[in-house]
Amino acid sequence: MEKQRERGQLALLLLPSTLWLGLFFLAPLGIILVISLVQRGGPVAWQLDGSAYVRLLDPLHLKIFLRSLTLAVLTTFVCLLVGYPLAYYIAQRPPRLRHLLHFFVLLPLWANSLVLTYAWMVLLRPEGFFDSLLHALGFAEPISLLYTPTAVVIGLVYWYLPFMVYPLYGSIEKFDFTLIEAAHDLGATRFQAFRKVLLPLTMPGVMAGSLLVFISALGTFVVPALLGGDKTLMWGNLIQQRFLSTPQDWPLGAALSLAMMLFMSVGIWFYFRVNRESA
């Protein structure tokens, strides 16, 4: 009796999350899976067909996939390079100043990201802010960063930096700085203390931040669409175009989506495996 009631309560408690996951994750996933397995045309013809997966293997797709991978890795790397010192700096400040710095890190997330990306277009375009600045400094050649891979990486780093800073801050803040003193005392220079003590002990933060930024950057489409132009398409743009631009090909779009999800799932599985081993 008692047990039955407990079970009923548990089911009731799990109902919202089950509904949420079912309606907004599993059902769309199922729809995508179904669409990937039918014929294209108008936008889909309900006829079982696996040819979308053949079209998926187009060498052009491989090229775009490799580009997405490169840009995502580069973004993650730059975020790490910028985010680690920033997180370290914040963690070392007195508590009151920390709150203010947190606020500044989060600030870009509060504004509309589309508007912010347009702002970057203004900054990066020819005769924009950076071009004028370089010109004033004596560089004669006009440069345009807009519609280059560099612009995409700048935009992505700008978008995803908070996702790197927070997990890093979490591990650095928990870190016992006496350990750094102990390392110095035993003869370690600042760099050695960082490499042998601080970095290994904040590795969970590095891994979590990198995973968040990498996954997000890999699936992005707004930043490359606005800052990358036609020449720097990423996987996300490819998916978007197959659904919304001509030539429309929903089954291919669905297959592209599933391929990306599969790739990311493998990445996340690998992350958890590494994490479990080191714990």
Partner: peptide, 30 residues
């Protein structure tokens, strides 16, 4: 002179052992 250049070693109140290293690695660190 920085701590790593002094011929003195400190035993910390909290021990400050490196949690990611075993006894051998901790002792061999210096």
């Amino acid at each position: 002179a920085p701590p790593y250049a002094r011929d003195v070693n400190l035993v910390f109140q909290s021990y400050a052992l490196f949690p990611h290293m075993n006894v051998y690695q901790n002792v061999a660190f210096g």
